[in-house]
Simulated scan of single mutants.
Amino acid sequence: MQVLVLNSGSSSLKFQLFHMPDAHILCSGLIERIGLNDSIFKFKTEKDTIKITQSIPNHKVGLEILSNQLLNKDTGIIKSANDIHIVGHRVVQGGSYFDKTTEITPIVKEKIKELFSLAPLHNPANFEGIEVAETVFPKAKQVAVFDTAFHQTIPEHAHKYAIANEFLTDHDIRLYGFHGTSHKYISEKAIDFLDKENSKIISIHLGNGCSITAIENGESIDHSMGLTPLDGLIMGTRSGDIDPSVIFHFAKKLDYTLEDINTLLHKKSGMLGLTGYSDLRDIQAEADKGNKECQLALHMNAYRIKKYIGSYTAILNGLDAIIFTAGIGENSPEMRQHVCQNLDYLGIILDEEKNQIRPNKLTVISTEKSKVKILVIPTNEELEIAKQAVNLFKN
């Protein structure tokens, strides 16, 4: 069985084609910097590695480039669209409708569309992936794996907002949590490594979108993102935590429309708003040159993460490990160092030499004296999605 997995982020599209159930990777790749003139398409098989820089204005164009490459007679990996048996899609927001992996039907698609407003950078891109895949691979089963599913274990006292009860009971307004597939995958790896009957873990997913999760005995018990992926940590273009009154100020004093405010907070804030750059690699390079705005933005980013580490350590009543994952978490020793500085009171002590690596497997980067293990674990949301998609049809 061949399973193609599409993982659409806010400005990226990761993909892998697996032979299942042995999880052999037939091809993999990434489209990054979507929406910019210098977007990058990477495609890798056992024989070829292709890298193209071009303008990819949106996810639909990116998916069309991918489908053409998969079917390329010289460097592609499949001879016919019918070679794909399942297409697994990461879908960010499942709302109260979906708490598990689901085969995509017209009704499921309508529900995903209804949730666009709760994940405006993601669900539309996820939906485009579904629409294109249905056209290119008409005989494949289409499966949705929801980011929100892993966080269904968050207790009511943590997911409920302090507003009138009917907003939860009648309108499903609550904390949902996101990046669940990634947090689930890496926390299971960490639990196996720790080999403890009871575990207390903080997982930190740092990419263009960023989130942090408190995990007790394998279950999510709190998470930085809320009703939408806008809340929490500072991100590439998203503000993260902000006083809601700022929105009223924008509207009343600056004459911003609701659409203006939505665009500002989702697409023009975060690291982009602070520095003019959304890609951490660009920001780090500028900071190294002495750019004060970039230096401050990096400090603010790490400071916000530290605040969550402290609060989650409190609700867990202890801590066994913290995990760094995703594009920034796995590949930025500088950001990991910023985050871990001055956390020795919590028993978190970074080994600076070990921290310099960019590992391709679970790696400990804490010192021997550190009471808390600091782990870097490469996430593999695509493999997790493939497994869940195949399991859906086992019975």
Rank of each mutant, 00 (worst) to 15 (best):
I309N: 05
L298M: 02
K373Y: 04
L316W: 12
P378I: 07
S224P: 14
G273L: 02
L350G: 05
L6H: 07
I385S: 07
D260G: 09
L194N: 12
G88A: 06
P21Q: 00
S12I: 07
N72F: 06
L194E: 09
L121C: 05
M20D: 03
I191C: 06
E114P: 00
T181L: 13
Q341M: 12
K73D: 10
N165I: 02
N355V: 08
Q16M: 10
N331E: 05
K113E: 12
D22L: 15
G62S: 05
Q16I: 04
Q93A: 12
I261R: 08
S39W: 05
Q295F: 00
H24C: 12
E293Q: 14
D288G: 11
K100R: 15
E64M: 06
K189P: 14
L121V: 09
N165D: 15
G177M: 04
L168G: 03
K253C: 07
S12R: 11
N262E: 14
M225W: 06
Q16V: 01
L280W: 02
Q54S: 11
M335C: 08
R33T: 02
E156D: 06
Y277P: 11
E110C: 07
L233C: 05
I40Q: 15
I305F: 02
V376C: 11
F167K: 02
A302P: 02
F193R: 08
G270D: 12
A140I: 09
K44P: 00
A389L: 10
I163E: 01
T228A: 07
L265D: 12
Q2Y: 13
I173S: 09
Y312C: 05
L206K: 05
T53G: 07
E110W: 13
V61I: 15
I154N: 06
D222C: 08
E134F: 05
E330L: 11
I357G: 14
H205N: 09
A144C: 09
P106W: 15
K292P: 00
P229G: 14
A251C: 12
I322A: 03
I323F: 02
Q337G: 11
T313N: 15
F178R: 01
A144H: 07
H85L: 13
F18K: 09
I305A: 02
E384G: 06
I201T: 13
D279A: 02
F127G: 01
I305N: 01
I242T: 14
E134P: 00
L343V: 13
S39Y: 04
E114H: 13
N391C: 01
G35E: 04
S10V: 04
K60Q: 15
F18R: 01
Q341D: 14
I186L: 11
P57A: 00
V364G: 01
L6M: 06
Q295L: 10
I365N: 05
I283A: 03
I242M: 15
E352C: 12
V108M: 08
D195A: 09
F248T: 14
Y176N: 00
E216M: 13
N82C: 13
K292N: 01
M20L: 14
A190R: 03
H299M: 12
T45Y: 10
S199K: 01
D74P: 04
L258Y: 11
P120M: 11
S182W: 01
A314P: 12
C27E: 13
T263F: 03
N360S: 14
G236F: 05
